[in-house]
């Protein structure tokens, strides 16, 4: 009789936190599926969140997240450890999102891709995570998050990238520079322009919403 041991690909994370990053990468390179599952579990949250905000669509973000880690798996042999694993994965994620965006734009004249596509259960999940004090808090927070999300979608892709990495993911300008493969000064000036664009967009959005 078969037991549930037949189960393949159940991504149980074992021994979390003990492996160092280098050790984990080495285990992955040796073809250890559990190690790779652990690596994905450690970083899937940030990849999915960033992809959702960059693309505006959680369903597409799910596909991108999958593709990001498939690329990570295949390119792990070329990872030199000069940047951190985190910034390396961010870089793959940004590139995948940029490619998706191009592909999508060629087929759709409307570049806006609203969060309304987010399913009810996902919204419910967010609400549950935040443990809202009152239903009104929940509505107010969701409205505000939707407003911010819409404002973000109006910016250019490059501006969105630096803003999300800096303000939402909390990366330093040096980490962003390493992720994007540009000079730190470039990140700072791009960030200044992106912040200015975002502030004006928020201002307009707030005016329209009132």
């Amino acid at each position: 009789m078969a037991s549930s041991e037949v189960a393949l690909g159940s991504a149980k994370v074992v021994g979390s936190g003990r492996s160092t990053e280098v050790g984990l990468v080495e285990l992955c390179r040796s073809g250890d599926p559990q190690a790779f599952a652990q690596l994905v579990s450690l970083h899937e949250g940030m990849v999915f969140n960033l992809a959702t905000r960059l693309l505006g669509n959680p369903e597409e973000a799910k596909d991108v997240s999958q593709d990001v880690f498939l690329q990570v798996y295949r390119a792990l042999g070329r990872f030199e450890g000069r940047s951190s694993l985190k910034t390396w994965i961010y870089r793959i994620c940004v590139n995948q999102c940029r490619n998706r965006r191009r592909f999508w734009r060629r087929r759709h004249t409307d570049s806006a891709c609203p969060l309304e596509l987010m399913t009810a259960s996902e919204e419910a999940q967010i609400a549950a995570d935040r443990n809202e004090a009152s239903p009104f808090d929940g509505v107010a927070r969701r409205e505000k998050a939707a407003l911010v999300h819409r404002a973000l979608q109006k910016l250019s892709f490059d501006h969105r990238v630096v803003l999300l990495m800096r303000e939402n993911e909390g990366l330093s300008c040096a980490e962003i520079a390493s992720t994007l493969g540009v000079a730190e000064g470039t990140v700072k000036s791009r960030l200044a322009r992106a912040r200015d664009a975002f502030r004006s967009t928020m201002l307009r959005a707030a005016g329209e919403g009132a």
Partner: peptide
């Protein structure tokens, strides 16, 4: 406006990405 960005809720995948990736590799 930057505070709004920082407060933007993090969206988590409903299902584990890891299991999808491992299935795909399999």
């Amino acid at each position: 406006s930057l505070d709004c960005l920082a407060a933007l809720p993090r969206i988590a995948p409903r299902e584990s990405v890891a299991s999808r990736v491992l299935d795909r590799l399999e």
